[in-house]
Amino acid sequence: MESKTARLTVLIDPAKKKAFETLCRQQDLTPSQVVRQLIRDYLSQHGTQYPGAAHNPRVDS
């Protein structure tokens, strides 16, 4: 996991939230793990590069 984190607030309806949390629990994953993977996949699908991505060279800050 990344060494630094930032908070992302997402508003969804309660029924979807409950279903999502239930599915995550059934798969022994946290909702945060799933959302992070969805974001990585979305960035990859659109060819968006960012520091720390496995396919990118490390960018010095």
Rank of each mutant, 00 (worst) to 15 (best):
M1Y: 03
E2L: 11
E2V: 09
S3N: 10
S3A: 12
K4I: 14
K4M: 12
K4G: 09
K4T: 13
T5Y: 12
T5P: 07
A6D: 07
A6L: 10
A6G: 06
A6F: 10
R7Y: 11
T9F: 11
V10K: 00
V10D: 04
V10P: 02
V10I: 15
L11Q: 03
I12G: 08
I12W: 08
I12T: 13
I12K: 01
D13M: 09
D13H: 11
P14G: 11
P14F: 10
P14D: 15
P14E: 15
A15W: 00
K16N: 14
K16L: 15
K17L: 15
K17Y: 09
K18M: 13
A19K: 02
A19H: 02
A19Q: 07
A19W: 02
A19N: 04
A19E: 12
A19L: 08
A19V: 01
F20I: 01
F20T: 02
F20Q: 00
F20K: 01
E21T: 03
T22L: 06
T22H: 09
T22F: 09
L23W: 10
L23A: 15
L23Y: 10
C24M: 00
R25T: 04
Q26G: 07
Q26M: 09
Q27F: 03
D28H: 06
D28N: 05
D28A: 06
L29H: 04
T30N: 02
P31Q: 00
P31F: 00
Q37K: 10
L38D: 02
I39Q: 00
I39V: 13
I39W: 02
I39F: 04
R40V: 12
D41Y: 02
Y42M: 05
Y42W: 11
Y42N: 02
Y42I: 04
L43T: 01
L43G: 05
L43W: 02
L43C: 13
S44F: 05
Q45Y: 05
Q45I: 09
Q45N: 14
Q45A: 15
H46T: 04
H46E: 10
H46A: 06
G47D: 01
T48F: 07
T48M: 08
T48L: 12
Q49H: 15
Y50E: 04
Y50C: 05
Y50L: 05
P51R: 05
P51V: 06
P51H: 06
G52L: 00
G52E: 01
G52C: 01
G52W: 00
H55M: 04
N56H: 06
N56E: 14
N56V: 14
N56S: 14
N56P: 00
N56Q: 13
R58H: 08
R58L: 09
R58M: 08
R58W: 09
R58V: 15
V59F: 11
D60G: 12
D60M: 05
D60L: 14
S61H: 11
S61K: 03
